[in-house]
Every structure is written in structure tokens, then in C-alpha cells.
Write a protein that binds this DNA or RNA. Sequence first.
DNA 1: AATGAATGAGTCTTCATTCAT
DNA 2: TATGAATGAAGACTCATTCAT
Lengths: 194, 194, 194, 194
Amino acid sequence: MKDKRPKYKQIIDAAVIVIAENGYHASQVSKIAKQAGVADGTIYLYFKNKDDILISLFKEKMGLFVEKIEQQIEGKETAEEKLYALIEKHLALLAEDHHLAIVTQLELRQSNKELRLRINEVLKGYFLVLDQIIEYGIQRNEFRKELNTKVARNMIFGTIDEAVTTWVMNDQKYDLVNLSPSINELLIHGCGRS
Amino acid sequence: MKDKRPKYKQIIDAAVIVIAENGYHASQVSKIAKQAGVADGTIYLYFKNKDDILISLFKEKMGLFVEKIEQQIEGKETAEEKLYALIEKHLALLAEDHHLAIVTQLELRQSNKELRLRINEVLKGYFLVLDQIIEYGIQRNEFRKELNTKVARNMIFGTIDEAVTTWVMNDQKYDLVNLSPSINELLIHGCGRS
Amino acid sequence: MKDKRPKYKQIIDAAVIVIAENGYHASQVSKIAKQAGVADGTIYLYFKNKDDILISLFKEKMGLFVEKIEQQIEGKETAEEKLYALIEKHLALLAEDHHLAIVTQLELRQSNKELRLRINEVLKGYFLVLDQIIEYGIQRNEFRKELNTKVARNMIFGTIDEAVTTWVMNDQKYDLVNLSPSINELLIHGCGRS
Amino acid sequence: MKDKRPKYKQIIDAAVIVIAENGYHASQVSKIAKQAGVADGTIYLYFKNKDDILISLFKEKMGLFVEKIEQQIEGKETAEEKLYALIEKHLALLAEDHHLAIVTQLELRQSNKELRLRINEVLKGYFLVLDQIIEYGIQRNEFRKELNTKVARNMIFGTIDEAVTTWVMNDQKYDLVNLSPSINELLIHGCGRS
DNA sequence: AATGAATGAGTCTTCATTCAT
DNA sequence: TATGAATGAAGACTCATTCAT
């Protein structure tokens, strides 16, 4: 996980910036190399090919993402608290790194099908966290027993993801984290017993 | 809307098939032309450029999509009935045209940023329908007054969209329409008063 | 055989000139295209890839080569006359097209193994002609019965080929066709009865 | 000649193996370095550049080659005996080192023109031996006076070389040295008085 | 309106060579 | 001597678009 090779991270961070600013299709390897301050060929000492940069980028960033969210959730007692923490952290993490937000919400999705399948693999880690919260909520009687876990998980992810995408599409004009209470309320109502 | 030039529709339908079967990036203009049974150059008599095919495709198909959903909703009395009808029709329309489902859920999303902004324009028609249902529900006291319309709309769209994408990604192995009750229940709980 | 597409021949002839003047490795596709007076992309309307240009070049030229030699041989009565005609024509054909000579003797041989195997396929046509002369000579009692056809064929081809290569390597300073009698004498002695 | 630096020979031997097993074009400097057990940069302490490895390889191996053949010939009395000894040794030396055979017959020939000219320089040592045998044969009245030395030399070299190449191309399936008598007979007939 | 041959700009990747250590 | 990480030049090929017919 802790890749001490400084150029590895250097290149990934450069890729995030270049892709966010130019879009996926206009992000030539040479542009990323320039931004990273290395030669074109150096990229290929750390990555197999261009797609590998994107997959690694997503793995690296998503790994941290899930890690941080898990930390946030850990202490919380109720499923509702956990869900709220997750929503807030999800929004906060993307709000504070708008380059990353653009890349994950817009640019990475225009990669080819194979790449997206690989990305989905990585997403499974996040889905796992969601599933655990839902099941925890059902156990604790906070959420309805009849809840279809898979559909509920899709709702939660779809709702948050759609909120972020809309925010990115609107040029991040408003405060994304402020949406947390509304989203949480909706989702809690959606899953909750009352 | 009613373009009587038969080749216009012919080319759009060819594009849906070619993109669904080959993926966005492997869908060259020449392939679409061949599938449509016209010469490459003929494409440019009906469309400004390649992106214009895709935007027109989306406009054309999404227009029909919204139209059909509106027809479905019209007669319904309660907001809940309207929402259920919308969910069911949304799922049904994509379930019955798997080429279109692949194109809208996977392939069209890997177009460039500009194209996706244009696509979002078209989506606004759908969002309008959603907003009307939400406001109708609030008026009728079916939905909570405090509901943030925009967030609620994102939840509804995000949830349905995520469900369809998951279904497409899983090679349409199960019956998509069967998910309607679960989704509806979740969303109604999310918006509802109880 | 008679490819009426003018660009096909145009490109092959351009390739012969460019390769002869620059060497195989310095013969970029763009250089061949320029020499042929077409765009780079046009090359790929007529040839699958760069190697295909070389294979086609060799097939085309070698086809004519064998054809012309066969014509020359046809009328001759004795094996010795046939052999002499073959030697003379082989030398004459390459002497009168020094670009082609450079390409066949030097440049084409530095292609990769796969390409050379393909080239060998084409050479088989020439070997067949040689084998027929040898067997004809044995039948007519001009050549020794014990002659190992394969070894004899290699000797004939190896001797002529080596003579041409030496001539090319020496910048074609002397008259190649003048070697015919000497070569013929050697080969006839090699195969002959006396 | 006697380079005591062990790495010099080490690298040359590595080059023979790598080129024989991977082909000329897939024999990167780094691969040769790895096979030799040294770092990439070390290569450049012993060789000026990549071509220099190949030329040195050829010089080194061809030097030994000619040396061994000269030893073989020395004791023989007649030109015919000398020629037979040369043919047999030539075939034997390549038959017993198939890596070297592949490299000399196939891979080294796809080097660039300049390199091949340098290789031809080295070959001159071998041609000298051939010329001496031919002249010796003429002096001794074994060979015809009228013999064109250069053409005869080309015949001898071309015939043997073609035999080896054919053998290598056929994956060394048969015993190469067994061809010696047939080849010798042909060449003796070619040069001889009878 | 329709054709389809021709165009040519644009980019990922390899690998011989260097040089700081 | 020896290392090996870093360099960066170079080139085959694709495909959206045009235009003469």
C-alpha cells in the first residue's frame, strides 16, 4: 500500500490534475509526464500502459477513500449515525479535492468497458461497507426487515453519487457537504421503520 | 421531431445497434454507415459530425422515453401511483430494448465532457417530470413538506439509474421490472410522511 | 495478377525506390507514401501493414521474375541451354533494375523471420523451375544420375545469388551479365557427366 | 584477440544465445545484459554501441571459425582434400553450435546495411582461404586453368552457405555434415578438369 | 441526394544510451 | 569498474471528414 517510490505517487497526482483539467481524451501520456516532471518513458517504468495509470489512480484514491470512511464510521453506535457519517465524509472528501471529484464523477466514466469493469472491482470495497451498515441497521431494528439489501445499497450509492455528479456538473457552485442532512433524511426515511 | 427523411432514423437505429454491440470506442462512422446501409459520406448529409449522431440519438430516444412515461403517469391520481408508474415504465422500456439499455447506461457515458453536457440538457426533460411528481406529492400532503426537491429528484433518478446499470453490468440476467416494488417502497419511504 | 488499381503498383514501385535508397530500416511508411505521391493513410487502403508492402512487393516482382525466366527457358532444347538461359536472364533482370537488385539482395534479407518465411514461400516457384531443369538434365543424360537434386538446386541458386550479392556489395562496378559464361561453366561442370 | 576481461566474452556469448532464442529484433541490450549477468550500463564499458556487440561477435566467432578451418586444411596435400576438409569443417562447426548457426545464417543478416558491410570485411578472411585453395588447385593442375577465381569462390561459398541456411530453416532436422560428400562432389566437378 | 476513395492529423509505446552514484 | 533509473526521439496506424463524381 505504502509505495515509497515517490515517482509513482507523483505520476498519479499529475494524472488527476491533467485529467481533471483537460478531460480524459485530451490527457495524453506526454501531458501527464510533463505535469509530473518526468520523461514520457519514465511513466512506463511505473505503469504498464495508459489504462494502468487510471486503474492505479482509482485503486489508490478509492483505497484511501474507503479507509477514511471506515475510520469515520467505526466509533458510531447506530446505523443511522454510521450512514450519516458515511454521507458526510463521502461528500467532504470529494468537496475538498475538486480535481479528484471531476475525475471520479465525469472523466473516469468515459473509459472503456474493460477499464470500467476493473473500476467496479475496486468499488466493491465500498459496496461492502454499505452492505454492512444496512445489515447492521436491520439487526438493530433500525431498518425494516423486508429491506432488499442490494436495492437499498444501490439507492444509497446512487443517491450520493448522483448528488456529487450534479454538483460537479454545476461547476461546484454550492456547498456540497450542506446536502448531507437532506440526503441522510431521505435515505433514512427510505430504509427506516417509521 | 417527425423527421420524415427515412435515412435519419435509419442511421440512428443503426448507431444504437453498432454502439451496443461494439462499444462506444469501436463504433466508427464507417461501421454505422454500413449497418445503416448507406455510404459514409451520406451520414454527413443528415448529421453535422459524429457527436451529432450521438446527441440526436439521445434526444430522439429520450424524447420518446419521456413521452411514454408521461402517458403512463397522466391518468394516475396519487403521487405514489405516479411514482410507481414511472419506475415501472422506466425499467420496462429499458428491459425491452437491451441495445438501448447498453447504450444509455454504459456506452454513452464514455463520451466526452461536452457531449455529456449536451446529454444532460436532454435529461432535464425527465427531471422536470420527476420534479412535478415530487411537488404534486408535497401539495397533496403525500410527501413531507421539508423535502428538498432537488435532492429528492437526485435520489429517485440515482436509485433507478443505479438499478438499471447494475442490471446491465450483470448481463441482464434477472428480471429488471421485478425490482419495481422494492425500489418504489424505498423511494416512497424516503419521500413519504410516515 | 494484373492489378489495375494504379495506386497499388504506384506504391510498390515507390517502396522499391525508397528501400533501395534508404535501406529497410530507414524506410518509414511516410517516406514511401511521399515517394508514391499519396497520403500516408492511403497506403493502408491497399496494404494491411508495412510488412505487407514488402511481401506484396516481393510477390509481385518475383512473380514477373519467374515468369520472364520461364519464357526464356521454354524454347531451349537441352538442359545446358536452359540453365544458361536462366543464369543469363537472372543476372540481366537484376542488372537492369539496380534498385530491385539492392532490395532483393540486401534489404529484404533484413526483414524479420516471419517475413522471410513468407518470402521463402514465394521463392519456391523459382526453386521449382530449377528442379525441373535438373531433372530434365538427368533424364536427358546430360547430368549425372547420382545428382542430389536438392543439393544441386542449392548450388545453382547459391552460386547465382552470391554472384549478384557480391556485385551489389561492390556497388555494381562491373558488368554482371558478363559473369554468365563463367558461372554457367562452373555449374555445368558441377552437374555434368564428363 | 585474447581479451582477458572475462565480461567481454561473457557478453558476446550472452548475445549469441539471446539473438538465437529471441531473434535479432527482439534482442534488446537489456536482455543481453541480463543473460550476461551484468547491468545494462556495463555493456557500454566494453562495447561502443549495440552494433559493436554484433560486429565483435561476428569477428570473434568468425576468427575462431577461420582459424579452425585453416588448421584442418594445413596438412592436406591435394586441393580436393583441402576443399573436402573445408566443407566438412564448415558444416561441422555450425552443426555443433546451433545457436551460432541461427545467428549467422538468419539473424545477423537482418542487421542494417552498414553492419553487413562490416561483416563482409570479416568474411574476407574466409574468402582468402578459399582463394588460396582454388589457386593451389589450379597450380597443381587439379582445377581448370580457365577458372574465374572470384566466380569459383562465390560458387563454393554460396553453395555451402545455402546448404546451411536451408538446414537451419528446416529446423536442423537432418544431419548437416552428411551433405559433405554431395556438396564436395558437385563443387569438385564444378572446378575440376575432367 | 448519394457515393466512397482519399486525406493527414494525432498518440502510445519502445529501447538504445547516459550519468549520478 | 559497475550500476540501473531515467531519458526522449522516433514511427506505424486509425478514423472522422471531405469532395469530385
